[in-house]
Every structure is written in structure tokens, then in C-alpha cells.
Design a protein around this nucleic acid. Structure first.
Lengths: 199, 199
DNA sequence: CACATTCATTGACCTACATCAAGAACGCTG
DNA sequence: CAGCGTTCTTGATGTAGGTCAATGAATGTG
């Protein structure tokens, strides 16, 4: 049932997406994305390994990834990313320290990748990259802020319900035990919450 | 025992601090700070009220402030800020939405304040402001990241111990019940942790 | 189709931390 | 220094959510 589009069409759609997101002209957005190189990964492939300095940012064209801490053998989900999202261990990226997280594909994933070095080189020539970086930092800040706020103020059920509202699409593609981990509870707790809510 | 310095000396010290923090030339740092206006607040004075859009950033010269959520009448500490720190509800600042937090002085506080509008005007004339904003966003991101990480991975005792190591100076100026709130536990829990650690 | 694997559910029980209530130890300020 | 508000401590008890273990459902694979 899916229409097979050319790589160019996909890229075009991503370009529009980026232009809108960062208030760029179509030309700037195209210039920006033309510096990325395409990477194709299979389900369970690792994009960033724990212990490696993350010096790259990906922009997902198609697919789904998770970014997780390893806490004594248990995965603790830090973030999910899907079509149109950027993915990186941005903490490692900024601080140049080894990543304490792992980024891995939950589905077959195609993404466009650019290195930190290339980004910095670009920023020198094209001032709009600096402004784009600022906006991106802002977005990352807002995301983290929302997450921290709900950890500080809400209980497990409230967090789950908010997730269902705010990221319903994601919640349907991701196994419940990973949702649980993202909400910082056990799968059993999610199961009981669902029962209580009779979903 | 304290040496009484002139206002100019204080400002000079802040200017150096900012220059170092953001890799600015002394000239740029001075130019930047010259756009701020001094505000003097007493203990318990409100800097940002809940419900008001926060369109300003303060830089603390002397004193201590808290930034708190109000959760059903209970304060939940989001952040503390003291000498040399910037203070704002940056979420409200960026999104132009009413602040859900209150920022209030824990001690008599002197700070330098600049409005969002002025900052934006400045950025047009002086490109270094844009880069400074990016760096500031980055720092805010890293701060939130650390906090979220410890909420996800650590228990109350670990969070308390890390606070003692990372912000010992702060911990000594702030009542324990606010430390507790910052760590998202009750004062009783902190008291019991201290007993167990025999501090 | 049989079998394995992976995920979700449920129940019994446990634990970290919260809540409530009562003192104790500080400051202040008159 | 007496008295009072504020913070900290301690004990008794409650609870959200964790852990462990068993069972089911759903999915993939030879």
C-alpha cells in the first residue's frame, strides 16, 4: 500500500520540515541538509556506542531509535527519536566526553548524519548555522524541561497519561516495557495503570 | 572582615566572570554588561511571579534566589541561583508563556537585569550576542541534563551526596527543607539520610 | 504446525520514601 | 533571658511503586 518515493523526494520532505522548524529559507535548508550524508541502519544496529564520544548528529528520515542509559544491566530510556527528529547524545557532543548512553535502532532506520567538525566548519561560512544551533539548543532545553518537570511534579499515572496525549504515535510503535522505562517505572506498573484506566 | 568594594569593582568582577564563562573579550563583556540595569532586592522579594511572562534575565552580583513550582500549596524547588549565576524562568522566556514558577530571594540580593527585548535588539548589532546565547542555551541544557539524569538513575541518598560534593557552598546557605525539595524528597528523608551518614 | 521467544498481565510480597505527630534545637526580637 | 517562630529530628505508620514468579498472549521460525 506504500508509494515508493525516490530518495530525492524523501530528502525534499525533510528539507521542508527543517525549513519550517528553524525558520530557514528553502535554499538555506537545502544547503544545510546537503552537507549531511545518508546512513541506513537495521533494527538493533547501534548508532552511538556507550563509551564513545558522540561527535555527530543524525536527522531521521524514516525509522525509530532509542537512547538509553545502562544502569547495572538494566536499560533506562533517556529518549526516543523518529521521523523528522534529530538524534545524538548531545551531552557528549557538547562536552566532548565519552557517551554514557547508547543509541540503537528500534526499527530499520534511514537517517542523515553530519559531524560536529563539519557543522563547525559550516558555521564559519554560513552565519545562519549559528542561529540554527541556538534554536536547536533551545528546543533541546524545552524538551528536557518538560521531562524534568513531569518527573518533579507528576506521579506514574499522570506521566503515562500525558505521554499518551503528547506522543500517542510513538506510544503505539514502542513496546510497553520501553515506555515504562522512559517514564521511570517498571512494566508491571504500566500494566496496572492501564488496568485501572481500563485501556 | 569583608572588604567594602565600590559598585564599580563589583561590576568589574562580574565582567571578568562573564568574559571567562563565555570566552568574550573584556571589551565585549563590558559592552554586554553595560546594557544591564542594577536591581536591589530584599530577602523574600519576588523577582518573577507565577503567571507572569518572564521577559528578563538577571545576573546575580550578590545574594541567593530560589525558583520554585507551587504544587498544591507545596513548594517544589526547580533551581537555586547565587553570585555569578544567571537567573530567569527561561522556559517562559523562550516560549513567551506565563511562568508556572516563582523566583524569590532567599537572601538580600543585588543583580543586573536585562530584558528579552533589549537582548534581541543588541543581538542584531553585535553578532557575538547570538553566539553567547547559544553557549548559554548549551549550559542550561547541560544543567538540566545532569538533574534529569540523577532523577532517572539515582536514589535519594545518592542525589544528596552528589549535591554535597557538587554544590557544597550552596548546601550550607540553604535550609535543609529546601534542599530536600530540590532533591524531590521530604525534609524527614534528608534528616534520616544525614543520620545514616552521621553528618 | 510445533516450538521458542518475546512481551504483557496478574498476584503475593517488599521497600523506599511519604505522612503525621511530637519534641528538640536553634535562632530572633522584645 | 524569656518567649516565639522556624527548622530539624525522631518515631509510628501508610502507600506508591518495586521485585519476583507464574501464566498468557502474540509473534516469529525451522
Amino acid at each position: 500500500m506504500q508509494i515508493d518515493r525516490s530518495k530525492d523526494n524523501h530528502l525534499k520532505s525533510l528539507t521542508n520540515h527543517i525549513a519550517t522548524l528553524f525558520h530557514l529559507s528553502p535554499q538555506d535548508a537545502e544547503l544545510f541538509l546537503s552537507q549531511f550524508s545518508q546512513t541506513v541502519l537495521k533494527k538493533n544496529d547501534v548508532f552511538v556506542a556507550e563509551g564513545q564520544v558522540c561527535n555527530k548528529v543524525g536527522l531521521i528520515e524514516h525509522g525509530l531509535m532509542k537512547c538509553v542509559y545502562n544502569k547495572e544491566g538494566e536499560e533506562v530510556v533517556f529518549e526516543f527519536a523518529h521521523e523528522g527528529n534529530f538524534i545524538s547524545d548531545y551531552y557528549s557532543f557538547v562536552t566532548n566526553t565519552p557517551s554514557e548512553k547508547e543509541i540503537r535502532c528500534l526499527e530499520d532506520t534511514t537517517l542523515y548524519v553530519i559531524t560536529k567538525e563539519k557543522l563547525q566548519t559550516l558555521a564559519i561560512v554560513h552565519p545562519f548555522i549559528e542561529s540554527l544551533s541556538r534554536t536547536m539548543n533551545e528546543r533541546l532545553f524545552l524538551q528536557l524541561h518538560d521531562r524534568l518537570k513531569s518527573m518533579l511534579l507528576d506521579d506514574a499515572q499522570q506521566r503515562y497519561q500525558q505521554l499518551l496525549v503528547q506522543r500517542r504515535d510513538l506510544a503505539q510503535r514502542i513496546p510497553q516495557y520501553l515506555i515504562a522505562s522512559y517514564l521511570n517505572v517498571t512494566p508491571e506498573t504500566i500494566s496496572r495503570i492501564r488496568k485501572k484506566m481500563s485501556i
